[in-house]
Design a protein around this nucleic acid. Structure first.
Lengths: 249, 249
DNA sequence: GAGTGGTCTAGACCACTGA
DNA sequence: CAGTGGTCTAGACCACTCA
């Protein structure tokens, strides 16, 4: 024991066969992804879905419970079941891990933003499944709290998925809501890689620190409901007054 | 909309009253915490628990399902329900977020370790709920992969919770299993704060880098099943070949 | 008060494990 | 084969929301 081993990730949905409630769940995901019920919109009640799909209410319930546990829907007693949307709460708690050292959690404001279109490099093409020669939008943002630039953020989006992306002016603070409302694309899951790196000269100017100072670099890949990659994001963050909060449970 | 707001954490177990299955769940947690079923040990079957507690099997099931979703128990079809233990899998995937840039996930080996007892400082006393003058164990470890020191780790434990902690020699690689087997203390949840900082001189020597180089500092607080703080841990990690992986879902 | 999700129950059957 | 958890059903009642 205690000998190092390599192991592969284990988050398998388990069974070798296919229970009814999972089929129901998949069909519901398809219909949500197809836009049958838009973000924030209400699904039919458990009773109605059960009748429509020809299964018992308990089976629909189990499917909906799983969707709720994956944050794809929100259930509200007495009101109904709704497709999750990127409101402030969700964006702040699910997708923004930077926290003030005092423990206060705030949504930063955008104090600078530019957008440009350019050819994707090979790394981006691979991550976004793009053909050679495809274009991407590149967004550069400064996000600030209490008048101080906290994060320099570079976002990369496939141009073909986001036509006329520069039409939206100004860029809203909550871009995930823009993806959702403007393009029907919901980021439901993200994976982040964190590294401590030396600050680059241009970022240092933005952050008000010196070149070479240690900064936290966060590389995020955002995935949609179908598992498709929607967004690449690199955040450079000065962690002298804030930190990245990670809950292991 | 889109105006910054402060908000407090929202992970409340919800209802204003107290459903039966939550009472069952709490009683089961108490019994697990009391050691009635040791880590790795099997709980009675759903049927038996239902009879013993005077509730239906479905209610016991719901309680056990919640415990399983919180990783307090593991359910195995055809075998039974077991109290979670810190086997390699769990320690690696739930509590070790450092990943090789190639994506491979390995358990590092301990290449250096010291233990000492000393007075707790005020910060430690506060975090561990200790009286003035209380003692703590301080563990210093180097953890390596492929012959290279990856992490310098400083662990702080309340001496009163870990009597004769220096008795265990050598210090096992998986210390959470030691807490569990030797002291009946299971770390079930941890919260980590991440910052990019300049490497200190002594850590630089251990990591084979230069003083001032950017390193990732991870401050962890480990909690037991009852919510009590068990461990404080500071990890200093050079992230040129590895990164910290965070899954947002 | 009608409609929603949340709880609790009871029972049947299925899939998996290990002796 | 007996015993375990996993699925599926049906029905009763509770708590909550909103018109």
């Amino acid at each position: 024991m205690d000998t190092p081993i390599d192991t592969l990730s284990t988050s398998a949905p388990k069974p070798g066969y296919d229970p009814l409630y999972r089929q129901v769940k998949r069909r519901l995901i398809e219909r949500i992804a197809a836009g049958e019920w838009p973000p924030g919109g209400g699904l039919p009640s458990e009773t109605h879905l059960a009748a429509e799909l020809g299964v018992s209410q308990g089976t629909v319930r189990k499917a909906l419970d799983e969707l709720a546990s994956e944050n794809l829907v929100v259930r509200r007693q007495g009101r109904g079941t709704f497709v999750s949307e990127h409101d402030q709460q969700r964006t702040l708690f699910q997708f923004f891990k930077i926290t003030s050292d005092s423990g206060k959690r705030q949504f930063p404001e955008t104090t600078f933003a530019t957008r440009a279109i350019r050819k994707a490099n090979s790394k981006e093409r691979k991550a976004l499944s793009l053909e050679k020669g495809a274009s991407v939008w590149q967004v550069l943002r400064h996000r600030s709290l209490e008048g101080r630039v906290l994060v320099v953020e570079r976002i990369v989006l496939a141009a073909e998925m986001f036509p006329d992306f520069d039409r939206h002016e100004p860029l809203p603070n909550n871009v995930y809501r823009l993806y959702e409302r403007g393009y029907g694309l919901t980021v439901t899951r993200a994976v982040e890689e964190l590294r401590a790196v030396a600050c680059r000269k241009d970022d240092a100017a933005a952050l008000g620190c010196r070149e070479g100072d240690p900064v936290l670099r966060v590389d995020r890949i955002g995935y949609g409901i179908t598992g498709k990659t929607i967004e690449l994001r690199e955040s450079i963050c000065l962690t002298d007054k804030v930190h990245y909060l990670s809950d292991l449970h």
